[in-house]
Write a protein that binds this DNA or RNA. Structure first.
Lengths: 193, 193
DNA sequence: CTCATTTACGGTTCGCGTAACTATG
DNA sequence: CATAGTTACGCGAACCGTAAATGAG
């Protein structure tokens, strides 16, 4: 059982179908289906009942929702706790964004972040060599490949959530944050700013 | 950030050294060191300060301890919740064990489990790997490839922890529980018992 | 037939272990 | 020299995406 699987599970529950959930999670439907199956196999229980071409929650699935949300929430808390102590005082943030989305809401976000954290150096650039239409994988140069802004940036919510849309925000692949991260991640390196 | 990493982190904190923690976690020292590094890279913060040949908690590490424990605890709760609903009422457990270790403490454990859950069918066999790519969908016989017993079996602790030693207990690799699981896993499938 | 989900399959990434290296006491 | 931690590297497993198959409406 993995946090990623729980996130996937919750997405399916929230959106009512694998299709919708996959779109929101930015993964292919088969991948999501596969992950759900793996979770069920891992738990040894069917979380959904396959009725027609719909997935409806089974009892076990119902029971999992609460704890699953809690896991996700607590994990976010863990990160926030660390950020609270050492985070975002000084560092460098590199953001890869689709040019078409790089102005708004990005500009506003960057402004908010830099005002909140004067020690930060923020850089914005294009997504280098996206592996598919939605996942970046750059590794060299200005280390593009990392990127995005998460909904709540930094230690305190500075109101730059804006839910991203699907242009200026995606999960990092190689360099920064693990790609396991939900989608949208920040990455800072202390000292290089 | 992954639950596995948090578990590793906590082990290092609790045991005071990578060496000890690695031994307890049953992973090689470099693997653990690597994982910690990855976690630090992911968070963008040093969790430990490398002083001499010792790791001492940095502020960020200190801040992470609480939330990390909570994540681990909540994740266990999630599994328990599912088990509570659908778990271990009726099903089949297949255990792969090294022959030399298949008697004790395995026999005692199996007895305890079957007494606790009369609906269970328990099978024990060698850790041979089945070439059947499909996991044991509960159709045919002892599809070995699954395995191990976790420290606390089932929904309530039935006292069969025994900490395993390193023979009759290991993480499943291909079928069954993900090997990400701490080590030792049970696997049940409803209906085929 | 159309749409949603699942299965099959190849590519890429990641975690782990072994071995070699560095540094501390 | 002995010990603890890190880096280098190869293997195996897992995840993802594309393509094809299955099944319900």
């Amino acid at each position: 059982m993995d946090v990623r699987q729980l996130r996937y599970f919750l997405a399916v529950v929230d959106h009512g179908s694998v299709n919708k959930a996959a779109a929101v999670l930015h993964v292919a439907q088969p991948s999501l289906s596969q992950a759900i199956r793996a979770l069920e196999r891992d738990l040894g229980v069917d979380l959904f009942r396959r009725v027609g071409r719909r997935l409806v929650l089974a009892d076990a699935g119902e029971a999992l929702i609460g704890p699953a949300r809690q896991v996700v929430r607590v994990l976010a808390t863990a990160r926030a706790s660390v950020d609270e102590v050492a985070g975002l005082r000084v560092g460098r943030v590199e953001i890869a964004a689709m040019p078409s989305q790089a102005v708004e809401p990005l500009a506003r976000i960057v402004q908010a972040v830099t005002e909140e954290h004067p020690g930060l150096s923020v850089a914005v650039g294009p997504p280098r060599r996206p592996r598919t239409s939605s996942t970046p994988s750059g590794v060299d140069g200005p280390s593009w490949g990392c990127s995005g802004l998460r909904s709540r940036c930094g230690t305190r919510g500075c109101g730059c959530g804006s839910s991203g849309g699907s242009g200026s925000c995606w999960s990092a692949r190689r360099a920064g944050r693990s790609r396991r991260e939900p989608w949208c991640g920040t990455r800072t390196w202390p000292g290089s700013g």
